[in-house]
Design a protein around this nucleic acid. Structure first.
Lengths: 344, 344
DNA sequence: CTGAAAGCGCTAACAG
DNA sequence: CTGTTAGCGCTTTCAG
């Protein structure tokens, strides 16, 4: 037979046609049973179900996606998924997505350098997703961020480009609250153990810290910048621990705060008697450090839910989307690592 | 025109045909440029690329998946993704998968009850994945676990059903090592703060604890069972903290250990002077507790990589698969929470 | 209530 | 080097 084409095509498993053949009906009838969207005679239905069972049939989702023009899946993009903030947001996104019948695909961008974002975005546009959530996009996405133009996007914790709707928490205000809490306790200044350059949350938290000090008429000391890890908090914390002027430190996240606390202990300083420490995020373990950590509690479940809502609300709608940002409140939780400064 | 069919079909974006039309070539030539698997004349190539750029074309993956019979994606199934162990494994799986050109789809089973596993599995068989990794499958999958028969599966930390290849760490042996470390320090017995019933890792860790005590001729005290959270460790730890016979506790994970340590502090007990504590997992924060936690360090990156390797090695191969289990070593890391028992 | 046809977008094979 | 053809599996429309 000449030019019969389509050689090399691979079959996945039993198809709707196989079931139809076995049940002695047409493929459409199998489809009707499968989707349940149309009426089928009870005995026909039975026969089809038995055939499905027997063959271990399950519908081919690629075919369905091709036909429907949608995948039923959203992509979640981040540098990594093993840090607490990302893990909590991921879990929340997953739950919210599943509630809406969507699955979640993970995509990493290995490096914070913005040149690496473009290939990632290209891979992404290729991805089998109907929408995209960009989580904690440090260093990116830059303006070169190429994206399938019709792809719905929601962004968390990133620089506003005016291009994508964002979910953010009131980091600036919460950071100010944290610093004011320390000033109200009587500290003459507050040091800052910040997040890395290029990170938008790090920038906002530092800005809030600086603003509170300036409001109080205090010249902000030079901040120390870490990479969010407890390791960095510990290593950089040594310098802070040796400095007798340091009586209060506002940290950009809980992990660094916990690293700092260990460094303080190793230097013979007591928390909070000698030095007060505040973290940021409210990770589960912050409640169980010794003493329990005073921190800014973020509402990760709500952040995840809002991100999903934002992306899904864009699907099928024509651009321009409504790009209103959503602010999810976060608030200071005073626990055991903050107190008045030591008496001179 | 009669019976022309296919109404209601949705287009996703610019297709290969649109590009072909604009560039004045055939669809196949566009495909050739897109895949790069065949030679195309340089000027034709240029024209096609320009057309792609202009239309914002990116290939429709559903169509490609349908044709190729593969999705380029693996599914990762768990109860939750926000706990440290899961988050670390997830991150490792993602990296390993990406290295092999696969993306990762997350699927949750909300409840540990095994009746909930079946719908999840059904959803899964439907999923656009070429293989499946089941991570920390507490309470399941039971024998009723229905699965597309040809679906490659790898399982972590679960009961061996002899049906799926597994990646496991030597939990029994490591737990024994931990308990022997405490006995060697002079403790007369070791208590156990265990994981929930129905969890295979919890069962193995408890078994190792029991075995070590029996080897030493000590009758194991009744274990206390928690749900892996620091909260549980803290709440259940109160009883342990009040019991004067308790001088050493082996905990089934780090979070519970940290909760217990806080409870001990609140009762005025010092760690390790009054009570020694060992955790399990080696989460990042275990190094930074005060004092740093003695624990069993798991090699999460390697576990993730092995899981991916196992699943991918099955793809395209006929059953029965080689179902050899892989054991990833874990080992005791002695830090600051263990010491000799207090003198009487 | 059921069957036939058609096409979503892609690419392997073949024929120029 | 490029075009034609066919079909992966599914579901909507139309005709019976």
């Amino acid at each position: 037979m000449a030019g019969n084409g389509a050689r090399g095509v691979r079959k996945t498993g039993p198809s709707i046609g196989d079931v139809a053949r076995l049940a002695g009906v047409s493929a459409q009838t199998v489809s009707r049973v499968s989707t349940g969207r149309e009426v089928v005679a009870p005995d026909t239905r039975e026969r089809v179900l038995r055939a499905m069972e027997q063959l271990g049939y399950s519908p081919n989702r690629a075919a369905r996606a091709l036909r429907d023009g949608r995948y039923g899946s959203i992509g979640l993009l981040a540098h990594r998924f093993d840090r607490t903030g990302e893990a909590l947001t991921t879990d929340a996104v997953l739950r919210a997505a599943e509630e809406q019948g969507y699955s979640v695909s993970l995509i990493t961008v290995h490096d914070a350098e913005s040149d690496k974002w473009e290939p990632a975005a290209r891979r992404l546009a290729d991805q089998t997703v109907d929408g995209l959530i960009i989580m904690r996009a440090e260093g990116g996405p830059g303006d070169s961020f190429a994206m399938r133009p019709s792809m719905p996007v929601a962004v968390s914790d990133s620089r506003p480009h005016g291009r994508f709707p964002r979910v953010a928490s009131n980091e600036f205000g919460s950071a100010k609250d944290a610093v004011w809490h320390l000033l109200d306790l009587g500290h003459r200044t507050v040091h800052h153990l910040g997040g890395p350059e290029g990170s938008e949350p790090a920038r906002l938290r530092a800005a809030g810290w600086r603003a509170a000090l300036l409001e109080a008429g205090i010249a902000p000391p030079a901040p120390i910048l870490g990479d969010w890890t407890a390791d960095a908090g510990h290593a950089l914390g040594r310098a802070l621990a040796e400095d007798p002027d340091v009586t209060a430190v506002f940290c950009a996240n809980d992990e660094m705060a916990l690293g700092l606390i260990l460094a303080l202990h190793e230097s013979g300083k007591r928390v909070p008697r000698d030095v007060s420490v505040i973290g940021y995020d409210g990770i589960a373990l912050s409640r169980f450090s010794v003493p329990p950590l005073t921190t800014i509690q973020q509402d990760f479940p709500r952040i995840g839910a809002e991100l999903v809502r934002m992306v899904l609300s864009q699907i099928g709608k024509p651009r321009p989307f409504e790009v209103a940002d959503v602010v999810v409140p976060s608030e200071l939780v005073v626990r055991g690592t903050t107190g008045p400064p030591p008496e001179r």
